[in-house]
């Protein structure tokens, strides 16, 4: 079953006259864990900003299903964004609210749930990310990894169909990063959500990525696409191979079973 959830056509991104990336074309299908990768400064996060409606494309379009996001009116855009959850790089929890209040915020605004039901929902979401009992903590009182997971709980508050992650495992130790990967995969499998992930964490890319696009900062466009393992096996582009092997093309890729 391949149903296109997000389609990007001829997208060109720029800050004023400064070109970031041009002519991007790709499709994210339902159930994908789509990885946007590339070296630092290639415009990965900028692409994310375009996808979640925080920055206007210089050219080209982004389709959610059949709907052109940047040609839709404000109401339609809000409808689309309601189905989307975003986990920002640092978690971006509101620092003056407790974890429970952070997660309850969208629930209070967009659903008719009573406060008791919301409290239950909040506990459930926190339990999903392994933070049961931390409702009344402020973001500054918990560790970075916990903040990130709490951010994930907030991103999932409204049961979104599409989850965006900006560098989910940045700043986490390898075990926490692996747990987060498992969590993302588990949530994708059980919720049937689609995941778009900006990362350059090779372990995550190979462990959970089902499709990907590789952005190059020099030519300012995508130079490879496809499932990460296939990309490594079939690409003849030196830049892609050096990136995917940590500049050590002879290294063997660990077998799939060993990771997942």
């Amino acid at each position: 079953m391949t149903e296109a959830v997000i389609t990007v056509e001829n997208l060109t991104m720029a800050y004023g006259d400064f070109l970031i990336q041009r002519d991007l074309n790709f499709t994210v299908n339902r159930g994908d864990i789509f990885v946007v990768m590339g070296g630092s400064g290639c415009g990965k996060s900028t692409l994310l900003m375009h996808l979640i409606g925080l920055q206007t494309p210089a050219k080209g379009s982004i389709f959610y299903g059949e709907q052109d996001f940047w040609r839709a009116n404000a109401r339609q855009r809000e409808q689309i964004m309601r189905r989307v959850g975003v986990l920002f790089q640092s978690g971006a929890l509101l620092s003056s609210m407790t974890l429970a209040e952070n997660i309850a915020l969208p629930l209070m605004e967009f659903t008719l749930l009573t406060s008791r039901q919301i409290a239950k929902m909040v506990s459930y979401k926190l339990a999903l990310v392994g933070l049961a009992g931390f409702e009344d903590y402020y973001p500054s009182e918990i560790s970075g990894g916990m903040q990130k997971r709490a951010g994930l709980a907030r991103a999932m508050a409204l049961d979104p169909e599409i989850l965006y992650f900006d560098e989910p495992s940045a700043g986490l130790d390898p075990i926490s990063a692996k747990l987060l990967d498992d969590l993302i995969k588990g949530l994708r499998d059980s919720l049937g959500a689609t995941v778009v992930m900006v990362t350059h964490e090779l372990a995550s890319i190979f462990a959970i990525g089902t499709n990907s696009i590789f952005l190059d900062p020099e030519t300012k466009t995508a130079i490879a696409a496809g499932p990460p393992r296939q990309m490594l096996a079939e690409s003849s582009d030196e830049r892609v191979i050096r990136f995917l092997t940590r500049d050590n093309p002879k290294a063997e890729l660990p077998p799939l079973e060993a990771i997942s």
Binding site: Y124, A127, L128, A132, G133, E135, Y137, G186, D189, S190
Partner: peptide
């Protein structure tokens, strides 16, 4: 359904940490 099962597992995978909860 399998989704429900795995979410139930996930939600109880990490038990509540002792003493973490705050009482008002």
């Amino acid at each position: 359904p399998s989704g429900v099962r795995s979410l139930l597992d996930l939600a109880s995978a990490v038990p509540e940490r002792e003493g973490a909860r705050r009482t008002a």
